[in-house]
């Protein structure tokens, strides 16, 4: 790990100012992904701004009847919140489908959105990776790509956004709230938060370097049946091959977002409109797919996972 200086801050404004002031600064909260990457010297911040004292660890009700989730609310606290369990069950289900109990106790709502890809070529510093070292190439395309992306990917990068929580947040139309060093705030719809890789896969979100996530807001509850179905190589503690977050009514109409296949939680308007027709919805979700030989199975897996979710929503045995 490269040496770094460290400071604690007590408000979001102070945090953003600290990040703007110091060269090569990063915010740290749970640290479960950042510290891992720092050990491998994939992340090499000069300065860490510890934001855990900024008080953003509560869930409050909004005037619109939704919830504002502080950026520091842990995955465990969010999944266990009675209002979330009752009104946004897909979010609780997505969170507990990911990581381990220890990691969920530390991982935060803001930090989890910034979790970096788990592509093995990003992690192996001996391999070419445009995300880790822009311009060095992509070893994944000709390598072991079973786990990697099929839509929204580019010639430069076929990695996926690996998380589960954000897939549920996408289906719930969550909005990310931020603050910058100059005091300006903005509200970014989750669907616009993660960038597609294009030619710059090292730039993963629309956040600026001194911009800090302060909260994630949820609109008022949608009702319906909430389902998160995750397909993976191991039954627990593994990243998704394909996951489906769904909020559906008794007829199977509603909305779905897919995890494990793209640089961001993948949601397509025409797929939602096609429901409950699973084949048509799956086609809309994967029509732009450019898979490798090794991960082309994900196209069929999206449809089959959707079919399972649909059966469950209609009360049939999946």
């Amino acid at each position: 790990m490269k040496p770094f200086s460290y400071e604690r801050v007590s408000s979001p404004a102070e945090a953003a100012a600290a990040a703007a002031r110091a060269r090569g600064a990063k915010f740290i909260a749970g640290g479960t992904n950042l510290l891992d990457l720092m050990k491998l010297e994939i992340e090499t911040p000069h300065h860490l701004v510890d934001v855990t004292g900024t008080g953003l660890d509560t869930i409050t009700e909004t005037d619109e009847g939704g919830l504002r989730i502080g950026a520091l609310v842990s995955n465990t606290a969010l999944a266990s919140d009675e209002r979330v369990k009752r009104d946004y069950a897909v979010l609780s289900r997505a969170i507990v489908a990911g990581a381990s109990g220890q990691l969920r106790n530390k991982a935060t709502t803001g930090g989890n959105l910034l979790q970096r890809t788990r592509c093995p070529y990003f992690y192996d510093t001996n391999q070419a990776c445009n995300k880790r070292k822009p311009g060095s190439g992509c070893a994944a395309k000709e390598g072991v790509s079973r786990q990697l992306g099929i839509v929204g990917v580019s010639d430069a990068c076929i990695a996926t956004y690996p998380g589960d929580m954000a897939v549920a947040l996408r289906v719930l139309d969550a909005v990310v709230e931020t603050v910058k060093a100059d005091g300006t705030t903005r509200a970014i719809p989750l669907g616009e938060f993660h960038r597609l890789w294009g030619d710059t896969p090292h730039i993963e979100t629309v956040l600026e370097p001194d911009e800090m996530i302060t909260a994630v807001t949820l609109p008022k509850p949608l009702g319906g049946t909430h389902i998160y179905h995750k397909v993976r190589d191991r039954r627990s503690y593994a990243f998704a091959l394909v996951s489906v977050a769904a909020v559906l009514d008794a007829e199977g109409k509603g909305r779905v977002a897919i995890g494990g296949i793209a640089p961001r939680p993948w949601r397509v308007e025409s797929a939602d409109a096609a429901l409950p027709d699973v084949k048509a919805a799956a086609r809309a979700l994967t029509q732009e797919a450019s898979p490798t030989d090794q991960n082309a199975f994900k196209i069929a897996l999206v449809e089959r996972t959707l079919a399972g979710v649909m059966a469950k929503a209609r009360g049939e045995a999946a």
Binding site: Y6, I28, G31, T32, L35, D36, D50, L103, N105, K106
Partner: peptide
Amino acid sequence: GQCGACTVIVNGERINSCLSLAVM
């Protein structure tokens, strides 16, 4: 953070002590 051998309890919750900076 993959094996759990370093698990300790901090403020009543289990965490992976290998993925947490002591100064925090």
